[in-house]
């Protein structure tokens, strides 16, 4: 039932583009563009250099991330370890008056016992992932009911104060979006210096997977906001109005 593209229209369209550019034949070579030139081995080398550079200045990057994140509207908390992180999460949920807190099913929750800490506060933890007892179709509705959403991240970017979240199995797109309060758990090794670093890594991963990489990603850089009425900032429109970044270690 899918509407398949009209291949003839596609061909004619591309021919018109070619004619508009004054060409009669398709290009024989890849255009000379620096970001396209690098093959996988060079891209991997580039990423190794980036990782080494960031590893060497980890502490400075963390400080830079936390200060930029604060400027971008994150509430920032640095804790020494997993236990304190779990407690910090539970306290945020309690202060928000939450009854239900949704989390993803990422590995980080094996280290950080968020569920236990939440229960101690009398808050119901809810794992927002499909499984034997829960069908995919229920996730959207459940995410709309939760008052807090908690996820780990893939990267954090010091340049922009962003958390990079790549949804996949166990990590619904809705956990970091639908509940009015969002908590991102970040670990030191995830901190990247710049946007360039993250895009270089993503390109490498894409090439490693032969283009069969996940299609979806978000850079989250503070609370949801709008200035659409009289250019006056208002926080928390469709996404969370309160966002917390917890740095573990």
């Amino acid at each position: 039932m899918t509407l398949l593209p009209d291949e003839q229209a596609k061909k004619e369209f591309l021919e018109r583009v070619r004619t508009a550019l004054g060409r009669t034949e398709p290009l024989k070579h890849v255009p000379d563009h620096p970001s396209l030139k690098m093959e996988l081995p060079q891209q991997e080398q580039k990423v190794r250099t980036i990782q080494a550079k960031n590893e060497a200045r980890r502490e400075r990057l963390i400080t830079a991330l936390l200060s930029r994140a604060e400027q971008m509207g994150w509430r920032v908390n640095r804790v020494p370890g997993p236990e304190e992180a779990a407690r910090a999460v539970a306290e945020i949920a309690r202060d928000a008056g939450a009854k239900k807190a949704a989390r993803s099913a990422q590995d980080i929750f094996k280290r950080v016992d968020v569920d236990g800490a939440l229960r101690k506060m009398g808050i119901n933890p809810l794992v927002l992932a499909s499984g034997r007892t829960r069908h995919r179709s229920q996730l959207k509705g459940l995410s709309f009911e939760a008052e807090v959403g908690i996820t780990g991240v893939d990267y954090a970017i010091a340049e922009t104060g962003s958390c990079v979240v790549i949804p996949r199995k166990g990590l619904s797109r809705m956990v970091s979006l639908a509940p009015p309060v969002y908590i991102a758990l970040v670990e030191p090794a995830q901190v990247m210096e710049s946007l360039d670093d993250v895009f270089a890594i993503r390109r490498m991963q894409y090439m490693q997977n032969n283009g069969r990489d996940t299609n979806y990603m978000n850079f989250i850089s503070g609370p949801s906001r709008t200035a659409d009425i009289e250019m006056t900032i208002s926080i928390g429109v469709h996404g969370p109005g309160q966002v917390h970044l917890i740095m573990i270690g």
């Binding site: 996949r168 850089s221 609370p223």
Partner: peptide, 21 residues
């Protein structure tokens, strides 16, 4: 803004294992 609140990247349907999309 230095960056907007959300920068979203997409390019296809969800994969077989994705939770949603």
């Amino acid at each position: 803004q230095r960056i907007s609140a959300y920068t979203t990247f997409l390019g296809g349907p969800r994969s077989a294992t994705d939770e949603d999309g």
